[in-house]
Design a binder for these strands. Structure first.
Lengths: 364, 364
DNA sequence: TAAATTTGTGTTAGCGCTAACATTAACAAT
DNA sequence: ATTGTTAATGTTAGCGCTAACACAAATTTA
C-alpha cells in the first residue's frame, strides 16, 4: 500500500542524483541559451527562429535547427507565458470526469483545442459549488487563456472570480446550460426548461394522462432538477396527473431499477420520464425482467441519447443532445473570442444555443 | 455556425478595451507588488507570508491579509514555477477521454491530485502513438511535476522524451499495463496477458470446448489485442477450439450486436469472451432479442465490470479491474516519488500491480 | 555616389516570483 | 558593556523567455 502521509512507502532509491547547476535552480533541460551558444548566436535569434523562422537568414536557421535537434530543446512555456502574457492553456471545470454526460463534451473541447495548439487544464468539482470555487481559484493561477465552467449556478465567490477574469480580458464560457436573460458570460448549451417542457408535451400528445418524472439523486445536479420542474409544470398545465420521484444517489442504472420497484408499490404511472438515459435504462431492464410491457403497460422517456438507449431492446425514446458539439463549439467560440481580443476588441458574451431533439423509439 | 477559419463569425464587440499598462505586457491582475505597496512592505514579505505565514510578524501578517483581500490577489503560478523550478501541475496523456474505460482512472487521478493541491493537465491521443508523442512534447513544455502516460507502447520519439524527462528528475508513470520485465518507468496496472489467460482458463474450467474472443475494433487498442492473444494461446494450449473475431470499429455495443450476428452465420461458439463489457453487452442484448439462451446456448464473458454488466438481465460475467484505483494509486505513487526527489534522492521506477478479479454472474 | 531602405542580428529591460544572503533591531548571555 | 542570538524584514540577482528598440551590413533607390 502506498500512503505518503504515514510514509510507510518503501521506494527503491538511486543514490546518484544528476547534478543541477550551482544555484540549485533550473531543471537541467536545455534552454534557448544552450541552443544559442551551440549555434553561435544570441538567445534572441533562437527565440526569433522559434516563432517566425522566415526572419532569420537561411544559413543561421540551419545552424539553429541543428542545435535544436542536438540539444533536444523544449520551450519552457511558463517563461514564454510570463514574457508575453499569453498562455496556450485553457482551463475547464466540470462536475465529474467519470460521468459519461460530460466526458464527450470534454473530448470535443480537448480535440478542438489540441487542433489549435492549446492545452487543456481540467478540474472536477464532484457537483460541489464550493469545490468549484476552489478549483476556479486554483486554475486562474495559471493565467489560462480561457475559462470554461459548467452551468449557470455558481457560488458568489466563484462568480466574482469569473467576472474579474472576464474584465481582465479572459474569455469565460458557461457550457451545458442556456438562459437568454443571463448575458453575464458566454454560453454554449441549451435550455433545460425547454427540454422539460418538450418531454412533457411529447408524452401528453401521445395521450398519456398520468406521468412521473424520475429526478436525479444527485442533489446538486441543478440541470436535471430544472428539467424536472419544467416537466411537471408543463404536464400540470396540460391538466394531467404528474409527480416527481427522487431517485437514490446510487449508480444510475441501479437507481433506475429501484425507482421502478418503488413506483410499482404505489402504482405504476402510465408514462415515466427520466433525468437521464442511465436511470431510464435501469428502469427499462427492471421492467423487462418483470415482464412489464413497454410501452403497453408503462412508457419510458430518457434524456441524453446515450449509446445504450438505441441498443436496449427495441429502443428507448429519449432526447438527444449533441454532447461532443458542446465541447467543440465551446472551443471554437473561445478561439474566436481570443482572436477578437488580440485584435484589440472586447467581446460581448455571446450565446450558442443547441437544439435538443426528441428521438422516438419504441418505449413510448 | 462558428468557424474561426473562414472568419464568418459575427462577434458582438465592445469598443472599450480596459487599458493595460504602457508596455502592453502584464495581465491587469494584482501582483505581489500591488499587495506589498498596499500593505507597506516589500514583495519578499508578501511572498514569505504566502508560503510560511509564521515567519512574518502577526501585525504585518494582518496588514498583508487585508491587502490580499482588497486587491483580490491570485498568485501567478508560472512566475512561481519559473522561480522555484517546481510546478504544481501533473500531465496525463490518455487514448480517449470519452471512453468510460479511462474516465474513471482520470477521475481517481484528478481527485487525489486535487486533494494534494496539484492540477491536472490532460491530453488525449485518440489511440494514436503519433499524437501521443506530439502531446507529450506539448505538455512537457509546461514542466509538469509528473508525467502519466497510458500503456507500455510508445513511439521511439515519445520514449526518448519520457526517458529524458525522467533523467531530469520528473516522475514518469505508465498506467493501465504491467510488464515485470520492463523497469524503464513506474507502472500502475495489471498484466493483460494474465487477464487473457484468466478468462480462457475460467471458460475451459467451466467445460466450454469451443470459444471465440471478440477483439476490439480499435486497431491501436494494444491492450485488448494482448488479452486476446493470451486468451487464444491459453485456450489452444488447453486443447480446445478457439478463434479470434475482430469486431467493427463502430460504437462498441453496436459492434457487439453485429459480432453476434456474424458469428451466428458461421455457427455460434459455445462461449464468447469479449475485449470489453460494452461489446459483450451488445452481444448479450442481441442474443436476448433473438431468444438465444444465455448461458444455455452461448456463454458470455466480458471485461471491465462496468455498471451495465451487473444490470443486464441476470448479470454478465466479467473481469473486474479497479479503474478508479489505478488513477488514485498513480497519484499516490507520483506524490511519493516527488517527496523522495525533494529529499534529494533519485527514484528507481516502481511497479504497482493490481489484481483483476473474475466476477461470476449468470452469463457463464 | 549618397541617401534611403531593407535585412539580419544584438542589446536592454522586464514579465512575477523566490533563493540566498544581508541588514536591522531587540533581546539574552557572558 | 560587549558579544552572541534571534526575529523580522529588505536587497540582489536570476529563473527562461520575449517586446522594443538599436545597430551594422547588404541592398535598393534617386
Amino acid at each position: 500500500m502506498i500512503n505518503p502521509k504515514n510514509s510507510s512507502i518503501s521506494l527503491e532509491v538511486d543514490p546518484e542524483l544528476p547534478s543541477r547547476n550551482r544555484t540549485g535552480r533550473g531543471h537541467g533541460r536545455a534552454t534557448q541559451a544552450t541552443v544559442a551558444k551551440r549555434a553561435g548566436v544570441t538567445t534572441m535569434t533562437v527565440s526569433r527562429f522559434m516563432r517566425s523562422p522566415q526572419l532569420v537568414a537561411p544559413e543561421t536557421a540551419c545552424r539553429i535547427s541543428a542545435a535544436l535537434a542536438e540539444t533536444g530543446y523544449t520551450p519552457n512555456k511558463q517563461a514564454g507565458m510570463l514574457a508575453t502574457g499569453q498562455s496556450s492553456m485553457v482551463a475547464a471545470i466540470i462536475p465529474s470526469i467519470a460521468s459519461s454526460i460530460f466526458a464527450e463534451s470534454v473530448q470535443g473541447l480537448s480535440d478542438t483545442l489540441q487542433a489549435h495548439g492549446l492545452e487543456l487544464l481540467l478540474a472536477s468539482t464532484n457537483y460541489s459549488l464550493e469545490r468549484e470555487e476552489e478549483q476556479i481559484r486554483a486554475v486562474l493561477g495559471w493565467s489560462p487563456s480561457g475559462l470554461v465552467v459548467t452551468g449557470r449556478r455558481h457560488s458568489p465567490g466563484a462568480l466574482s472570480l469569473m467576472r474579474q477574469a472576464q474584465r481582465n480580458g479572459m474569455p469565460v464560457l458557461e457550457i451545458w446550460d442556456h438562459d437568454p436573460t443571463d448575458k453575464a458570460f458566454a454560453q454554449i448549451g441549451f435550455s433545460h426548461r425547454a427540454v422539460g417542457a418538450l418531454m412533457a408535451t411529447y408524452l401528453v400528445e401521445r395521450g398519456y394522462r398520468d406521468v412521473v418524472y424520475v429526478d436525479s439523486g444527485v442533489r446538486e445536479d441543478f440541470r436535471a432538477h430544472e428539467r424536472g420542474q419544467s416537466f411537471a409544470a408543463t404536464a400540470h398545465a396540460a391538466g394531467i396527473s404528474v409527480a416527481v420521484y427522487q431517485a437514490t444517489s446510487l449508480e444510475p442504472m441501479q437507481a433506475g431499477r429501484l425507482a421502478l420497484q418503488a413506483l410499482q408499490k404505489t402504482g405504476l404511472p402510465r408514462a415515466m420520464a427520466f433525468a437521464n438515459d442511465h436511470l431510464a435504462a435501469g428502469a427499462f431492464m427492471q421492467a423487462f425482467d418483470q415482464g412489464i410491457d413497454i410501452p403497453g403497460k408503462v412508457a419510458m422517456l430518457g434524456f441524453g441519447d446515450f449509446p445504450i438507449s438505441s441498443q436496449l431492446g427495441a429502443g428507448l425514446s429519449t432526447v438527444s443532445v449533441k454532447r461532443y458539439d458542446i465541447g467543440r463549439k465551446c472551443a471554437e467560440l473561445l478561439l474566436a473570442m481570443q482572436q477578437a481580443l488580440k485584435a484589440g476588441r472586447m467581446i460581448l458574451p455571446q450565446h450558442e444555443v443547441l437544439q435538443p431533439e426528441l428521438v422516438c423509439r419504441s418505449s413510448t
